[in-house]
């Protein structure tokens, strides 16, 4: 069972406002790293909206995940600028090192690989974003180095 006290607190923070449903879902994902079904059903119940409304929103936006994700989210930009500068090769290298495909999570739960169609930093392409940190002009040979930064907890040698 998923602990839903955080969900109740988030909904309270928006005073149960139905129009804030998208912001509420974003906040829930920020806590759980994905949208647990139980959390979405709690939103339905508390905001008195239809299940279909929550389902259509949660599946419409690429930014929402309905599956549990890893501790670190590795987002490879596949926009046009990144693409021509070798983003597919960077994605291949990341997938090879992780042993998982796009949209999948490593068995140790440390990384989830995702792609996005543009992060709006085209001058930095090819670009990989990890937990919101930008790693621009990345070469396939630098992938290991970047990922290693997230393998160990901060402050540990």
């Amino acid at each position: 069972m998923v602990d839903l006290t955080a969900v109740d607190k988030i909904i309270e923070g928006y005073h149960g406002d139905k129009t804030a449903i998208l912001a509420i879902l974003q906040d829930i994902q920020a806590v759980y790293n994905y949208l647990p079904r139980e959390a979405m059903m709690r939103v339905v119940e508390k905001l008195q909206v239809s299940t279909t409304q929550v389902s259509s929103l949660a599946t419409f936006f690429h930014a929402f995940s309905l599956k549990p994700r890893g501790k670190n989210i590795v987002t490879v930009c596949m926009g046009t600028a990144c693409h021509v500068r070798g983003a597919p090769r960077v994605l291949d290298e990341i997938e090879r090192q992780m042993g998982v495909k796009n949209q999948e999570t490593t068995p140790d739960g440390l990384f989830t690989v995702e792609t996005v169609n543009c992060v709006g930093a085209c001058a930095l392409g090819p670009l990989v974003m990890v937990n919101g940190n930008y790693h621009g002009n990345i070469a396939t040979s630098e992938v290991t180095e970047v990922l290693d930064q997230y393998r160990k907890p901060a402050g540990q040698a």
Binding site: T51, T52, Q53, S55, F60
Partner: peptide, 9 residues
């Protein structure tokens, strides 16, 4: 009833 709607895009 709002039982059915679109999913995905």
């Amino acid at each position: 009833a709002k039982a059915i709607f679109f999913t995905n895009r």
